[in-house]
Write a protein that binds this DNA or RNA. Structure first.
Length: 363
DNA sequence: AAAATGATCAACCGCCCTTAG
DNA sequence: TCTAAGGGCGGTTGATCATTT
């Protein structure tokens, strides 16, 4: 326990990454791909520890990273996910294509939590659009930050959800995601002045559902590399023991009531439940016809709200084993598993979480 | 104009889990 | 079975910039 991080060695650089360092890292990854982060240091001479390299890649250089303001839908989703999962930022990030756990975490602490305290975010970049903060700032869609709709929700949730998630292990089937056509300008300056990938055509990214966001992002093309990044088809998440019932003083009773379902809920939330955007449509009979492929990860369904399904879900084993599935693995709503309970739960404490919002926004 | 204060976010830290040898 | 390395995660820090005084 308490192992060395590997970043404490003398001679390694710390702090903001330089363009040269970014290029060294990208060049290495272009050839060798992800993993074996410590090898990067040995093989490239990059004076960064492996963890630092991984962090830089995951949070900044990786193709598909979205930067810029969070949309109302994204904010709502973050709030709901946090309500259910607590500070499980990586899980929450998994529901927001292109967003990193770090970014969401920062956003939560700087913006959402602030709203809960009654202080709306001051968007400095709106005030000073010419700020040298650089590329990232140019992407900001300022209009999205001013959402007033969730303030009350945050106030109700931030006080009670710390460590509220339950242990769980989950598996998501992901489609092959190749970003050879991803367009971004490689970071050319430090993190404070534009190291962010400067996405072009950012306006195309802002869309009303996260699946479309992902699709838009994936069409961007790289101007300086053809970096191939193949996401694994299956991501495995295993959380540590910060249990729902682990004795947090403020574990909400409403959460406890759903304890039996929480494991499944967590899995579903960790899966691509953009599949369920427009949830009422998802449970329509039309959707059932796609059930097998959907479960196997091949489905590209389009719900009636126009949000195309980017990728699909490997449903929780418990659900798949249920008799209620009986060969039709998409009959959730009108069979045994009560998704509406989840929605009701999400709705349970806050009037702002209207059924309309649930039905029309990304869940 | 300068100093103080506040806000933001990239990066670091430390812990934990998994896996390979 | 044990140990160490690799990797992942959440919490925290600190540099930088904007705003206020």
């Amino acid at each position: 326990m308490g192992r060395k991080t590997g970043c404490s060695k003398d001679g390694l650089n710390k702090g903001a990454w330089t363009p040269v360092e970014d290029k060294m890292l990208l060049d290495y990854l272009k050839i060798h791909g992800e993993g074996k982060w410590s090898n990067i240091v040995r093989e490239t001479g990059l004076k960064r520890c492996g963890k630092s390299c991984r962090l830089r890649w995951m949070n900044y250089l990786r193709p598909g990273i979205r930067r810029g303001n969070f949309s109302d839908d994204e904010e709502d989703l973050i709030i709901r996910m946090h309500k259910l999962l607590g500070n499980r930022w990586s899980l929450i990030a998994g529901r927001l294509p292109g967003r990193t756990d770090n970014e969401i975490k920062n956003y939560w602490h700087t913006t959402i939590a602030k709203k809960a305290r009654g202080k709306p975010k001051v968007d400095r970049k709106q005030i000073a659009p010419g700020s040298p903060s650089g590329a990232a700032s140019s992407l900001k869609n300022q209009s999205t930050v001013e959402s007033q709709c969730t303030t009350g929700v945050v106030a109700a949730t931030t006080t009670s959800q710390e460590n509220s998630a339950q242990d769980h292990q989950l598996s998501i089937a992901m489609p092959q995601f190749t970003t050879s056509n991803l367009q971004y300008e490689s970071s050319s300056t430090g993190p404070q002045n534009g190291a962010a990938s400067n996405f072009k055509n950012q306006s195309t990214i802002e869309s009303q559902c996260t699946t479309e966001v992902a699709a838009a992002a994936s069409t961007l093309q790289s101007t300086d590399s053809n970096l191939q990044y193949d996401m694994p088809k299956t991501y495995e998440f295993e959380s540590s023991s910060k249990g729902l019932a682990s004795g947090g003083e403020d574990n909400s009773s409403d959460i406890m009531m759903y304890n039996d379902y929480m494991d499944d809920f967590s899995k579903i939330l960790a899966s691509d439940f953009t599949e369920f955007s427009g949830i009422h449509d998802i449970f329509s009979t039309d959707h059932h016809s796609n059930n097998t492929d959907a479960v196997n990860g091949d489905h590209r369904g389009v719900s009636s709200n126009g949000c195309k399904s980017r990728e699909t879900t490997e449903f929780p084993e418990k659900l798949l084993e249920s008799d209620n599935w009986s060969g039709n693995k998409c009959g959730l709503a009108d069979q045994g598993f009560d998704f509406m309970s989840l929605l009701s739960f999400l709705d349970s404490t806050d009037d702002e979480w209207t059924s309309d919002a649930l039905g029309t926004k990304v869940l």
